[in-house]
């Protein structure tokens, strides 16, 4: 299975959200990293067929997804960043409704819906109305609906938003178990969400993929550029503001360890350390937002 974008561009007036993007995705888990406004959500909507490209095309195994229509959508599972529910539906009814839209037979749908509710930790809320759910529970229900029908292409936009740490681990395990022989794309700006499960990281900036590869490969790009050094706690803020700082760690003895990204040693006693994805993210998205 090969999902490709060929010179894909999406413009909203003068703003280019996705810029001449050519990408090939085969089976595996892809972590789409980028700051707010980098174009991640637009790219995902384009991949889902929710928006039409301004130019370029998206193909699955060589065929345009627009032409594949139902045949493409039957392979698709999607969790949008923002979505709504029917407040008077129970969790089970909501999944059964979407299962009907996905063309699942009723008995299969009922069985699969219960399995998924259990997998996302909502088995006790199966018949509770969605209007009684917390934000995290709604998000878990969203994850469950995306997995309905065992989609071959799973697109998850900020799937861990609103989840507590325990649920995030549960989610990671669920996706890892699910991802075999499938294309899974998950976008986030929370690096740790993808660090453990993504086989390939796609760093997106200004509508383009600026870096792609497995976590080890792409962090190698800044190998030698990540430093740690100790400063007095009283001056930690001053140092943090002066450098591209990825972390501050108070050691408790009036000393703070700073982790910074810089081409050369920021201070004399700085020690070079092994970069991680968060460092790479900061390297590309210093300042928090892309535009």
């Amino acid at each position: 299975m090969k999902l490709q974008t060929n010179h894909l561009t999406k413009q909203f007036g003068a703003k280019t959200a996705v810029d001449d993007l050519s990408l090939t995705l085969t089976t595996g888990v892809y972590g789409l990293l980028g700051a707010n406004g980098a174009g991640k959500t637009t790219l995902m909507r384009l991949l889902c067929g929710l928006q039409t490209p301004s130019s370029g095309e998206i193909t699955l195994n060589g065929q345009r997804i627009a032409a594949l229509g139902e045949n493409y959508r039957s392979l698709l599972g999607y969790l949008p960043q923002h979505f709504a529910y029917y407040p008077d539906f129970s969790a089970l009814d909501f999944l059964l409704y979407l299962a009907a839209l996905k063309g699942l037979r009723e008995t299969t749908a009922r069985k699969r819906a219960r399995e998924l509710l259990k997998a996302v930790g909502l088995s006790e809320q199966t018949n509770h109305k969605i209007k009684t759910f917390s934000g995290g529970m709604k998000q878990r229900l969203g994850i469950a609906q995306a997995l309905l029908g065992a989609p071959r292409i799973l697109i998850l936009d900020e799937p861990t938003a609103g989840l507590d740490p325990k649920e995030r681990v549960r989610f990671r395990n669920l996706i890892s178990a699910f991802s075999k022989d499938r294309i899974v794309i998950l976008s986030t700006h929370i690096v740790s969400d993808v660090e453990f499960i993504a086989e390939e990281i796609l760093m997106m900036k200004a509508g383009q993929i600026v870096q792609a590869g497995n976590p080890q490969e792409i962090t190698a790009e800044i190998d030698g550029n990540v430093w740690e050094f100790v400063v007095p706690t009283a001056r930690a803020e001053e140092y943090a503001a002066a450098f591209n700082t990825s972390n501050l760690r108070n050691t408790g003895s009036n000393a703070t360890v700073l982790r910074v990204i810089a081409d050369r040693p920021p201070v004399q006693n700085a020690v070079r350390v092994r970069p991680n994805l968060e460092d790479l993210y900061l390297f590309y998205f210093k300042g928090g937002t892309d535009r």
Binding site: R73, G103, Q145
Partner: peptide, 18 residues
Amino acid sequence: YGGVDNLILTSRYGRTKC
């Protein structure tokens, strides 16, 4: 259009039978 359309339109029958 309040947000369920995302889910409906990406489902198999969202643009047809739905």
